[in-house]
């Protein structure tokens, strides 16, 4: 039997045999643009997704994180093992997830919430991007708990999608998160809260 790979490649070459060359890709769209204050815009756009967003001082992070967890009533938290230790505090039971001691799926599912940092954030679209790098953990960590508290440093926020793409390494597992999980499947209207975390809270630390 013919090798399907060879057949498909041969079909492609035959289909293209008489094709004229295509013009080069012109990228005259805007890579960066003046979006005003990126922090303000990011905060506004995250809030548009009905996520909670607050601007806090870096040095006040432990207090602010504790305040968020208290307001949420979250007591059992999970976090990546490399989360800065000084972020963790309050009357909370912390379970740390890392390559040496991964938490079970059930344990993640039972947690009240997860605290992480992020890799990049996009002001124009109100997006945070996780790349499994420092303070972020593996992908399941930010997926199963129903509440995701994410710390975004001011220097991680860029204005546009192209600026974010340029900063990211695609070979790492990436998750772009824009608001809490949602669906438009009922009458094409956006409703928050399906399988992913139904509550997203972002602390912009500057």
């Amino acid at each position: 039997m013919a090798d399907p790979r060879e057949v498909v490649l041969r079909r492609i070459r035959a289909a293209l045999a008489d094709s004229p060359p295509v013009p080069p890709v012109v990228r005259d769209y805007e890579v960066a643009r003046d979006v005003g204050d990126v922090l303000d815009l990011f905060a506004e756009r995250v809030a548009d997704y009905r996520a909670v967003v607050r601007r806090v001082r870096v040095e006040a992070l432990p207090v602010e994180i504790e305040a968020s967890l208290r307001a949420r009533g979250a007591r059992r938290l999970v976090a990546p093992v490399d989360l800065p230790g000084w972020w963790r505090g309050g009357e909370v039971v912390w379970s740390l997830d890392g390559p040496a001691h991964p938490l079970s799926v059930r344990a993640l599912d039972r947690a009240d919430g997860v605290l992480t940092g992020c890799a990049v954030a996009i002001a124009e679209t109100g997006t945070i991007v996780l790349d499994a790098g420092p303070a972020q953990g593996r992908r399941a960590l930010t997926l199963l708990p129903d509440y995701h508290l994410c710390v975004v440093r001011a220097d991680q926020i860029v204005g546009t999608v192209p600026e974010a793409i340029a900063r990211l390494d695609p070979v790492r597992p990436l998750t772009f998160v824009s608001g809490p999980s949602a669906t438009s499947d009922i009458e094409l209207d956006r409703v928050e809260g399906v399988h992913g975390p139904r509550n997203l809270e972002v602390l912009i630390a500057h």
Binding site: R139, P170, P173, F176, S184, G196
Partner: peptide, 30 residues
């Protein structure tokens, strides 16, 4: 950078869809 702008705004009319996942082969432990 082009398609992640074109697609969400054309499909669900959002600035960005809630989740976009990118993976490459297999990542040990993740």
């Amino acid at each position: 950078e082009v398609f992640l702008q074109l697609l969400p705004r054309s499909s669900t009319a959002e600035r960005m869809n809630p989740y976009t996942s990118v993976w490459t082969g297999v990542t040990p432990g993740d």
